[in-house]
Nucleic acid binder design. Sequence first.
DNA 1: ATTAATACGACTATAGCAGTCGGATATAAA
DNA 2: TTTATATCCGACTGCTATAGTCGTATTAAT
Lengths: 131, 131
Amino acid sequence: MLKLTRKLEYALIALRYMQDKGDTFISAKEIADMYLIPQELLAKTLQQMVKLNYVKAAQGPNGGYRIRNGLTEISMTKFMEDLEGPIGIVDCNINAECIQLDNCNIRLPINKINSNIREIFNEIRVGDITS
Amino acid sequence: MLKLTRKLEYALIALRYMQDKGDTFISAKEIADMYLIPQELLAKTLQQMVKLNYVKAAQGPNGGYRIRNGLTEISMTKFMEDLEGPIGIVDCNINAECIQLDNCNIRLPINKINSNIREIFNEIRVGDITS
DNA sequence: ATTAATACGACTATAGCAGTCGGATATAAA
DNA sequence: TTTATATCCGACTGCTATAGTCGTATTAAT
């Protein structure tokens, strides 16, 4: 219950590591070996972050990934939702295809809680974790 | 990501319904029919809440469940953890069997976030949802 | 007795997540 | 110009927590 995904964990670990390394390109392999993360999975995650313009990639030998400038300023809500889709502690927060809907007797307070959680992550920046 | 379990949803829906009905015993079937919830699953959840002394049960015809007095005052953190075990957005919040541990470079900030989330649910009482 | 309810353990099913594999492309260095 | 090392990307398999089902026993009102 209320778990983060591994992808998110791996992404944050990688970002923090790259952050420490400054401007040089770091390969997925290096990070995977360092933190005992499945390399393929981490690579895919990094590639997704390339598309999101979170990191920059360089191919070929001595290639790898480098963190984008200013990334640390974005909120965790944006970061998480970019990687994993909308945060919703129940399904109707996301797709609203629940057979209940109006009938549901806990909908409003649950929605409120969901907002609270998004708010928490809004106030945390990626840099708060990776620095 | 960051989902509540169905069990928890069903429990809250049931509690709210029972709350509205006052002192009479309500059968699992009645609630299940009303909210299109799998009856067996709801029944098991209610039975778990009996053990937790959250609700009182009466067997036989006209039996069912009744909400315990004062239940609405307990925190959502306690409620959720009683039903589903510890809240932990990552595994090391719970069992600490991670191969990383000291090596992990995001452990502290992630732990902090976990505390924040537990804090949110600490400040919400069950009655805030069921009343 | 019959009926309608809880009690409870064992079982199966599902789906989202985690991880793997194969092959293509790019590029730096030898 | 060949080789080695990296990203890129889609398809695939595996796993596990959650979700849901079933059977049987027990209880109690009518």
